[in-house]
Design a protein around this nucleic acid. Structure first.
Ligand code: FES
Ligand code: FES
Lengths: 144, 144
DNA sequence: TTTATTTCGGACAACTTTATCCTATTTGTA
DNA sequence: TACAAATAGGATAAAGTTGTCCGAAATAAA
């Protein structure tokens, strides 16, 4: 469904959000330990998230990654997915036709579109805050 | 969503179904031309479909690939996907946790499960026959 | 201003998926 | 039986994704 990079990116962003809500910056090392991901690869993904203005990085001593507090509620899952995997999952044809086109549909188009749109809707309506709360309250987990 | 191999597999199977319903066997060459896929790679995927008893192959002169007529109505999309991509798409965790477990869910579990189950339901309730009919009647297409 | 700390970014390595090529095997027909 | 036509399958290559390494650049504190 999502690429590994995207999975790591989502989990990393949630972990950063949790810590930012408590005014703590976190390092790629902490992040990769908490989300059980390869450190250097995770660092690369974090760079992409920074470039896409989803998380903020602060270099140098006492630096790390953080998310501005007001962004925790407004940032949606869809933005993270888009930043890393692009929009193929929302727009692409389920059978790999060059474009998904109502006027030239593949045989699964009608049925596939329903699910794809629902996924899109879900991603666009799920905020970082919601996800972070479930981790904080211990009802959801980022690893194992 | 699906691998390239799976996309080709689905389209190939639909094309074989159309031809089998008219008592024609088809070759990997014809198939790859009609579904716009690399021939040798498509042939490999066809082997997998044969091993999984989804299509039948007949070697030698006048051979080719076919699907027994009664199977065209009973074969479901889910069987093709399972044969090529396995069950990760039905069972796997959206964020890549080792297993998707209600008792140890990832933060997107509740929302993701709904969509994943709907996808599963769609695949399990879409028959080859339905898909083939849309191609035959010209309302859906296998390439471009 | 120097030093320690930390992210950034490029190069590269490993692995997986996609794709190609060539030969072996099977089978129908002359 | 010999031949031609067709799928099966192994070896290999190309491309994409995932993962590692290391030095450069930035920043805060001493
Ligand atoms: S054309 Fe294939 S999903 Fe729309
Ligand atoms: S645990 Fe992640 S989808 Fe169920």
């Amino acid at each position: 469904m999502f690429s590994k990079a995207c999975e790591y990116g989502i989990k990393a962003t949630i972990f950063i959000a949790i810590n930012s809500s408590e005014n703590r910056r976190v390092s790629p090392k902490e992040i990769s330990e908490e989300i059980d991901s390869p450190q250097a690869f995770t660092a690369k993904i974090l760079q992409a998230l920074v470039r896409n203005n989803i998380v903020k990085s602060v270099r140098g001593a006492y630096g790390g990654f953080e998310i501005e507090k007001d962004k925790i509620a407004t940032t949606k899952l869809s933005q993270i997915v888009y930043a890393i995997d692009g929009d193929g999952i929302y727009k692409g044809c389920g059978l790999g036709l060059h474009t998904c086109d109502e006027n030239h549909p593949c045989p699964v188009h009608d049925k596939f579109k329903v699910i794809r749109d629902e996924l899109k809707h879900m991603l666009e309506n799920t905020s970082l805050e919601q996800l972070a709360l479930d981790i904080k309250s211990g009802v959801a987990f980022l690893k194992v």
